[in-house]
Design a protein around this nucleic acid. Structure first.
Length: 312
RNA sequence: GCCUUGGUAGCUCAGUCGGUAGAGCAGUAGACUGAAAAUCUACGUGUCGGUGGUUCGAUUCCGCCCCAAGGCA
């Protein structure tokens, strides 16, 4: 008995994932499951390049606008939500298509991360974050981890505050080191065909620049201003998104807008690079050259063979 | 036309009292198990504007030329 088939489109920002997703959805009666850590937030439309109302009217999109901007979210939550969405789509005889650039989320689905069942503790995180404010504090945290969980301390760099904190968090919450958590073999309930969207670096970067300029013209500053106006904290997870965190000081500190714009472009480039690193590591990814005129057709043909089970 | 100050890594610049050079930013590669658009790690050779000269040796000193900025006419 074969597993249900799921399509996925991963790749760097601004490389054309959404358009490809729409094309595949139209060809196969598919529905899109958002795989993006920022598009889950409501009222963050421009900066996240969220699918438009027209696109969403044409093809159902899942897991978009499922959180308020002041709420937290996590991979574990995503894995749960995505599985529910996929089951729902499959149950109606449609094809689920994951579209997005969050590598960690994809990995949680394909490699089935066993996330330990230890949810985060916001207050504890705040405390650890404050303590990690200077070099001495970071050293102290790492030393503490060394005594309670030497295995994790060994592989975590002192400056990697997010991970050192998480390891300490798990220990403080459960009394067990994170490195000792059970990680049984995982067998994904789905069979995936993963497309990776690729472009020559220079072309990708100029697309990113153009997209950022368009976002600014479309009113990204007003979007950020509105979020701040409704009381969303600059420390909120949602406000760490690229395009948001850079614009906050324009309003809170009268920083020049042009600096924010160039920072957004630079951070988007770096982000695209990190995304590429993530997806390149997965050798199941079927790369597509997005500069080719016929990519959509190529992808449709490959997906067709996959869905019909005729792929060898 | 003359004077002055510059011309060194993609950019901004430092430096070599003559022994072929280094920071920041940009960039590149990588990691990633409940923050992931987050967090972190590693990586610095370039006709030192061109050309002659002095010298064992010149990016460094001298001459000339080119370019840029400013000033004087």
């Amino acid at each position: 008995m074969s597993k249900p088939k799921v399509l996925a489109i991963a790749g760097p920002t601004a490389s054309g994932k959404s358009e490809l997703g729409m094309a595949l959805a139209e060809s196969f009666g598919g529905e899109i499951v958002c795989m993006d850590s920022m598009q889950i937030y409501r009222r963050m439309d421009i900066g996240t390049a969220k699918p438009t109302a027209a696109e969403r009217a044409k093809i159902p999109h899942h897991l978009v606008d499922i959180r308020e901007p002041d709420q937290a979210y996590s991979v574990a939550q995503y894995a749960e939500d995505a599985k529910a969405a996929i089951s729902n789509i499959l149950a109606r005889g449609r094809v689920p298509i994951l579209v997005g650039g969050t590598g960690f989320y994809l990995r949680a689905l394909t490699h089935g991360l066993h996330l330990g069942g230890v949810p985060s503790d916001p207050k504890l995180r705040e405390r650890l974050k404050d303590e990690a404010g200077d070099a001495a504090g970071r050293k102290r945290l790492h030393e503490r981890l060394q005594t309670v969980d030497p295995v994790s301390a060994e592989r975590l760099h002192i400056n990697d505050v997010a991970r050192v904190s998480r390891a300490l968090e798990v220990y403080e919450l459960t009394g067990n080191p994170i490195s000792a958590l059970e990680q049984p073999a995982y067998d994904s309930p789905y069979e995936f065909l993963i497309f990776g969207t690729e472009l020559e670096r220079a072309a990708l970067y100029s697309r990113i620049d153009a997209r950022v300029d368009r976002m600014m013209a479309d009113g990204l500053p007003d979007e950020v201003k509105a979020l701040l106006g409704e009381g969303i904290s600059p420390r909120a997870q949602a406000m760490q998104g690229i395009g948001y965190k850079e614009l906050v000081p324009v309003f809170s500190n009268h920083d020049p807008l042009e600096h924010a714009v160039s920072d957004i472009k630079r951070n988007s480039r770096r982000y695209a690079k990190r995304q590429l690193t993530w997806f390149r590591r997965d050798n199941a990814v079927h790369w597509l050259d997005m500069a080719e005129k016929t990519v959509h057709t190529q992808a449709v043909n490959i997906a067709k063979a996959f869905l019909e089970g005729t792929n060898a």
